[in-house]
Design a binder for these strands. Structure first.
Length: 418
RNA sequence: GUGAGUGUAGCUCAAUGGUCAGAGCAUUGGACUGUGGCUCCAAGGGUUGGGGGUUCGAGUCCCCUCACUCACCCCA
């Protein structure tokens, strides 16, 4: 094989592509019903946009970005996530002058230079939403509900909703201090990774998978006990609204987000159908980011759905999901009949009926075989006899019934409209 | 970046170091001249990932390399 796709990138082919299209159209429908409007932002941005928002010491920025100099030696980065470009756009286009809240959704490829594994790729697709200018927990709950309805519409099952609050710049330092205090006597027993985390980001010790650390963190202080009054009432209101909306969730005080900009509400939706990378959607509030980017103080919240992971789940819970089949297959024998068949197909297609033709003067047998494999509902058969009589034979491939219909009235054939 | 596993036909997989590397599925054709699915028959399809070594003999053993997969890390 001379050429192959680069590591961690992939082609999306039929039949999978139909799942993608369905997921994308469903997202557009449902998010629109919630007042989210589509926004399209560039795939390349100035590198510092991501460094500022995601955080200088995060793995994404330190070792996973596709960063390169352009011809004028500016540092350019292929977007590793969608929030930063949308925030940049929100500020640059003065969208904060429009009535609040402003709600957007986006979809498209993201790029991270990682070792690929199940559910993780170097080019991967996300559908995400961002809402600016509403601090109320009502919006947080609404967004979770929207996600739930989106997943239900795609007939997805057995998803776990996990929520947490990671506080704000007022209360999180206190919690961090308490946490470091708790672990200070045990640092040397923690796994090597957690020794590093203790210095860089002690919150990360909370979701370490090592059995040693799982044991050692028993009885560790919970973030939810350290929230300031404002964060606490925000979280409680959020939870009570989830209850009112009949959303089943799990409070996971160990859930931490990997990007620096999150505040208060965070959430993750996971599925057992995925591998180790089991998060299919995640997000949270980022009430300080717009201001840090040079915009006016603006609360915001958003999430992103991992498309490859979403599609993987759908394939597991619902194999054979919405694969379209031609309504009618036209089998023609002979040159004149083939021309007539082409005309008939064009008439039907003009009425948005999917019509497929046989090619390469294949035998009637092989044309029928192909019609069957494509899953066609009906076959029209045209040969010399039919041309002479002006009547075309039709056959229902699902039940085997047959009949005749005049060539002129084919587009009124009732089987095509069932 | 680290670790483990796997590379044989389009796909899923066989083949004790020993004949010409096989099977199922898929594809194409035939049985059935103009009627699909089921059945039967046949055909096409391979640099055994690549390179080197050991051996009378390597798909099989050794080394190097590449690719893929899974996991760690991290994240959607």
């Amino acid at each position: 094989m001379k050429y192959s796709a680069l590591k961690g990138v992939h082609d999306i082919l039929p039949p999978d592509i139909y799942i993608w299209q369905k997921a994308e159209s469903t997202a557009k429908e449902i998010f629109s019903a919630y007042g989210f409007q589509e926004i399209r932002v560039p795939i390349i941005e100035s590198t510092d946009i991501f460094v500022r928002s995601i955080g200088e010491t995060t793995d994404i920025v330190e070792k996973e970005m596709y960063t390169f100099p352009d011809r004028a030696d500016r540092s350019i980065t292929l977007r590793p996530e969608g929030t930063a470009p949308v925030v940049r756009s929100y500020i640059e286009n003065h969208l904060y002058n429009l009535p609040s809240p402003q709600k957007f959704f986006y979809s498209g490829p993201m790029f991270r230079y990682e070792r690929p594994q199940k559910g993780r790729f170097r080019q991967f697709y996300q559908i995400g939403v961002e809402a600016f200018g509403a601090a109320e927990p009502k919006l947080d709950a609404e967004i979770i509900s929207m996600l739930k309805i989106f997943f239900e519409r795609l007939q997805m099952k057995e998803l776990k909703f996990e929520v947490n609050s990671i506080g704000c710049e007022k209360c999180r330092p206190d919690y961090k201090k308490a946490l470091m205090n708790f672990f200070s006597s045990k640092v040397t027993d923690l796994c090597p990774d957690c020794n590093r985390r203790y210095i860089n980001n002690p919150l990360r010790i909370l979701d370490c998978k090592s059995s040693i650390c799982t044991e050692l963190r028993k009885g560790s202080p919970k973030i939810t006990d350290y929230l300031c009054n404002e964060c606490k009432s925000h979280f409680e209101e959020f939870l009570s609204l989830l209850n009112i909306l009949h959303i089943t969730y799990n409070i996971n005080p160990h859930m931490v987000r990997g990007l620096d900009y999150y505040t208060r509400t965070t959430f993750e939706i996971t599925s057992e159908y995925l591998g180790a990378q089991k998060t299919v959607a995640a997000g949270g509030r980022y009430d300080k980011l717009v201001e840090e980017f040079g915009g006016p103080p603006t609360s915001a919240i958003g999430f992103a759905i991992g498309m490859e992971r979403l599609v993987e789940i759908i394939k597991n819970v619902n194999p054979g999901f919405c694969i379209p089949a031609p309504k009618v297959f036209i089998a023609a024998i002979g040159k004149k009949a083939n021309a007539e068949g082409l005309l008939i197909a064009e008439q039907l297609r003009a009425k948005d009926i999917q019509a497929e033709l046989g090619y390469d003067s294949a035998s009637l047998k092989s044309q029928l075989r192909r019609a069957d494999k494509l899953g066609s509902n009906y076959v029209f058969i045209i040969g010399d006899d039919e041309l002479k009589s002006g009547m075309v034979k039709w056959k229902n491939l699902k039940d085997g019934s047959q009949g005749e219909i005049g060539i002129a009235s084919i587009s009124e054939f009732e089987g095509l409209y069932r």
